[in-house]
C-alpha cells in the first residue's frame, strides 16, 4: 500500500501522497469534518429558537 517516494522535488503535499488515496482522503477529511461542528452549532440554535 505504501509506495516508494518518487517525486522529483520533495514537498509537503508530495509527502502526504504516500499511496493510493492518502492525500485525497486526508484533504477530504479536513474539509468535511468541520461541517459536523457547524451541524451541532446550528442544531443548538434551532433548539434555542423554540
Amino acid at each position: 500500500m505504501f509506495e516508494a517516494f518518487t517525486d522529483v522535488v520533495p514537498s509537503f503535499f508530495g509527502w502526504l501522497n504516500q499511496g493510493p488515496l492518502t492525500l485525497t482522503i486526508f484533504l477530504h477529511t479536513v474539509i468535511i469534518l468541520p461541517m459536523i461542528w457547524i451541524y451541532f452549532q446550528e442544531k443548538k440554535r434551532l433548539e434555542n429558537e423554540n
Binding site: 461541517m35 457547524i38 451541524y39 446550528e42 442544531k43 440554535r45 434551532l46
Partner: peptide, 11 residues
C-alpha cells in the same frame, strides 16, 4: 438541521 438553509449556507 438537514433541512435548514443556514446550515447549508455556512457549510
Amino acid at each position: 438541521v438537514w433541512s435548514d438553509n443556514r446550515f447549508w449556507q455556512r457549510s
